[in-house]
Design a protein around this nucleic acid. Structure first.
Length: 431
RNA sequence: GGAGGGAUGGCCGAGCGGUUGAAGGCGGUGGUCUUGAAAACCACUGACCCGACAGGGUCCGGGGGUUCGAAUCCCCCUCCCUCCGCCA
């Protein structure tokens, strides 16, 4: 949520920067609602004050034993018209509509973000690692995995329909190995605190991080209840401190969680229908930081490097992309995507997204901090990043480490997590 | 699922419907005393909003109601606790 004070002070400048974010709405109603709320608020405040004094007088008269005067004043007050509640109703209505409108506005982009309508305006920051050269036609991961007995699409369809997967045997082991490896790196080497979380969260939590109210179609809701399957652990992690005022000395908070993520993928029909790129359910190791305002951009750089570390250790070629104003998620002020090389597609595909949301989520979730007890509180800055999407890492390993005979080498860094296994081999080739 | 009991400031805990934004304690901050510390004593110490300041308003889990006036009375909701049932 944006600072309404900012909108009031500079409506046209804010509107321009919102247009950079792809927001085509009009700020005029918001500006008007702000003025209405403000005027009614001060009027109510004034009326209340006057009323309060007279009500107290009744009590004082009773206590002084001046019953008759007290009764007279009481009767008078009873007869006097209610000037407050009507204004209060109008004020509440204005405030509620204002709130709804504000909740739909995206964050403003940071100055360093390229302005543009879509991914065409993104800027590549760096490339790390060389795409592997194959003396044969590299296969897509779903073919490799099916042959290796690591993926069973038919049975997944039988259980749940499209965009779900069953990973038998070695497939499941690889998924678990990757998750443990990522968690170990982020907790031991980068100092994140691991947290185990609910996978179902309230609407309030989703509103706090920005998925609601605008993107209700993207999340699965439990029938008849105010509970939703998390689309990312960013939601419970960031909301851990919702409504709290932290002390500056305890910042930054650095959290990591390994969870399944659930996405309805409404509107993505026909996109990435083959393979495991786009699923309704996937595993992810998520990083979240809560920082003081002055440090958040340093923390974004280090968080991005923390995510990159996984790709480096797995020796997967990737690039870092700075998203343009039009390509970012609604809560982000600045986002770096990490894209891993996929040989079968001959291109880089998103495997992580690291964002600084500045105050946007902190305002919605009311996450504050203060310098010291007694000092004024400020909104914290929140950051989130994948470290990494496990499912996409799984398939990137298969594709990049595939051999001519259909086997897949295991990256060195992962072998300790697979009892020293050096390759996934075809059943026929085994023994 | 059934039966009870709760929700008050950073924490514990009072609170006849009328100077109660809220006693008391703990904690915290400052001071006196002390070579220093502890102890003791004194003072200060909730949040949010509007305002340059003075000041004003709101907040006792959330929402509604009764009343001239609600932390205090009534209704609904949420959450927590205890016991029973069920259960990994």
């Amino acid at each position: 949520m944006l600072d309404s004070e900012r909108i009031r002070r500079d409506p046209s400048g804010t509107a321009q920067r919102l247009r950079d974010r792809g927001f085509d709405g009009d700020l005029a109603p918001i500006v008007e609602l702000l003025a209405t709320r403000r005027a009614l608020q001060s009027e109510i405040s004034r009326l209340r004050h006057a009323l309060k004094l007279r009500n107290r007088e009744v009590g004082a008269l009773y206590r002084a034993g001046r019953r008759e005067e007290a009764e007279r004043l009481r009767a008078e007050l009873k007869r006097s018209p209610d000037e407050v509640s009507d204004r209060e109703r109008r004020m509440k209505a204005a405030a509620a509509e204002l709130e709804q409108r504000l909740l739909h506005l995206p964050n403003l982009a940071h100055d360093s973000v390229p302005v543009g309508p879509d991914e065409a305006a993104n800027v590549e920051i760096r490339r790390v690692g060389e795409p592997p050269q194959f003396a044969f036609e590299p296969k897509p991961h779903q073919e490799l995995a099916a042959a290796l007995g690591m993926l069973d699409v038919e049975r997944a369809v039988k259980l749940s329909g499209s965009r779900f997967a069953v990973l038998p045997g070695a497939g499941a082991r690889l998924e678990r190995a990757l998750a443990r490896f990522m968690l170990d790196v982020q907790t031991r080497r980068h100092g994140y605190e691991e947290v185990w979380l609910p996978l179902l969260v309230s609407g309030a939590a989703l509103t706090g991080t920005g998925q609601l109210p605008k993107f209700a179609d993207d999340v699965f809701r439990v029938e008849g209840r105010d509970l939703y399957l998390i689309p990312t652990a960013e939601v419970p992690l960031t909301n851990l401190h919702a409504g709290e005022t932290l002390l500056r000395s305890e910042l930054p908070k650095r959290y990591v969680a390994f969870t399944p993520c659930f996405r309805a993928e409404a509107g993505s029909y026909g996109k990435d229908t083959q393979g495991l790129i786009r699923q309704h359910q996937f595993d992810k190791v998520e990083l979240v930081k809560i920082t003081e305002a002055e440090r958040s951009y340093e923390e974004l750089e280090s968080m991005t490097r923390d995510a990159e570390r996984i790709l480096q250790l797995l020796e997967l070629p990737y690039r870092v992309v700075l998203l343009s104003s039009g390509d970012m998620g609604q809560a982000a002020a600045k986002t770096y995507d990490l894209e891993v090389w996929l040989p079968s597609q001959g291109t880089y595909r998103e495997i992580s997204s690291c964002s600084n949301c500045e105050e946007y989520q902190a305002r919605r979730a009311r996450i504050r901090y203060r310098e010291a007890p007694g000092r004024r509180s400020r909104f914290a800055h929140t950051l989130n990043g994948s470290g990494l999407a496990v499912g996409r890492t799984w398939l990137a390993v298969l594709e990049n480490y595939q051999q001519a005979d259909g086997s897949v080498r295991v990256p060195e860094a992962l072998r300790p997590y697979l009892d020293g296994l050096d390759a996934f081999r075809l059943p026929a080739a085994q023994g």
